[in-house]
Write a protein that binds this DNA or RNA. Structure first.
Length: 339
RNA sequence: GGCGGCAUGGCCAAGUGGUAAGGCAGCGGCCUGCAAAGCCGUUAUCCAUCAGUUCGAAUCUGAUUGCCGCCU
């Protein structure tokens, strides 16, 4: 990788760390956080709650869907009982029709980390949304919040003049970024052009300057691991359990409340499947089948994300004592870890 | 017991003499303000088995096995 080029990156990363004070110095009193991540459905919540109780810690959820109110069965939100066992943050913080993104997440979650650190509480960051965890731990490059008008206009341009034209524009404007973005990746083409327009700078420069070198916290990252077959099995069973608990009714309720099926939140796994069934686009069997399949695929994507993280320690969820020891060691050991 | 049909990768399935479409499922990967989203790549030395015809067969012939129909 290219983490060697740090002298440039540090200056621009500053803004993101302001919330924590002097972020880039590896001072001994950096807040310590323990990240518990892993694929969906393997039982992160249960493990995390147990650990939180043991360490008198609070949990910051790192889950891009549990932030939504009214979406509880399909997102496998921690139960009231579990939340009573350990205080949870970043859950139920926005309505399903409100916009939210990784930068907002990082800002809020970092503030909570600092606050808890000030109170002397230990912090567990628990979740499966890789980008949110990365944004919390390393920050994102600084830019103005996306201008909805620019984004909207670019989306319209895709319709009118075609994505290939936009892609060629990007190739001309920012060849470095274009080289990393596939011509079919509308999502990132638009984002790159949007940043270029809003800031006047190529996104590739901003990326390079940032470089994820910012490290305001001391982090222990634990990935919960389970064999693929066993995981898929659990996922299939958990989907059945969600349905038993009334997933269909929950989605029906959201629609009744006026939350449209094409909201981002309603397009997530489980919600879109139930909505498609309600609207008659899918048979019940198809809805359940594809719901299970899409959950499995999601878990697989998460695994490739986490597998790439060299600082992550894979541990077995069935051996909580080993995890506990690891955390104890991390919390007590004052010498800085390699990270 | 007799007659007929069908046997192609995990599943569905095209291909009737010239060197194995496609879909699904799976697998591998990407990811810097929509991330449970979005995107890319990949999967049969071989067509039930054996023998034969042919320069050449998944494709033709015969036998065997299995499955499905119909008949006595």
């Amino acid at each position: 990788m290219d983490k060697a080029i740090s002298p440039v990156g540090i200056t621009s990363g500053r803004g993101g760390t302001s919330v924590t004070g002097q972020g880039e110095t590896h001072s001994i009193d950096r807040p310590r956080i323990i990240v518990i991540c892993g694929p969906t459905g393997l039982g992160k919540t249960a493990v995390a709650v147990t650990l939180a109780e043991a360490f008198h810690a609070e949990i910051i959820s790192a889950d891009s869907m549990q932030i939504y109110r009214h979406m509880t069965i399909g997102t496998a939100k921690p139960t009231p009982l579990e939340q009573a066992g350990a205080p949870h943050h970043m859950i139920d913080i926005v309505d399903p029709d409100q916009s939210f993104d990784a930068a907002q997440y990082a800002r809020m979650a970092r503030a909570i980390v600092v606050d808890l650190h000030g109170k002397g509480r230990s912090v567990l960051v628990v979740g499966g949304t890789g980008l949110y965890i990365k944004a919390l731990v390393h920050g994102l490059f600084q830019a103005e919040p996306p201008d909805p008008h620019i984004r909207q206009r670019l989306k319209e341009e895709v319709e009118t003049i075609g994505m290939d034209v936009l892609y060629r524009r990007l190739v001309a404007d920012d060849p470095a970024a274009a080289g990393k973005i596939h011509a079919n990746d509308q999502f990132r083409i638009i984002r790159a052009l949007e940043v270029r327009e809003a800031t006047g700078q190529p996104i590739s420069d901003l990326h390079q300057a940032h470089g994820f070198v910012d490290e305001p916290f001391a982090v222990l990252k634990i990935g919960l691991h389970m064999e693929r077959d066993a995981l898929y099995d659990r996922i299939n069973r958990r989907v059945d359990a969600m349905i038993d608990k009334g997933l269909l009714a929950e989605v029906q309720g959201l629609l009744t409340m006026g939350y449209s099926a094409d909201l981002k939140s309603m397009q997530s796994i489980g919600y879109r499947h139930m909505a498609a069934f309600i609207q008659g686009h899918l048979s019940w069997d198809e809805a359940v089948r594809t719901l299970k399949r899409d959950t499995r695929r999601y878990a697989k994507r998460q695994l490739t994300w986490f597998n790439k993280d060299p600082g992550l320690l894979w541990m077995n969820p069935d051996n909580p004592d080993a995890i506990r020891l690891q955390i104890e060691h991390f919390l007590q050991n004052r010498q800085t870890e390699p990270q």
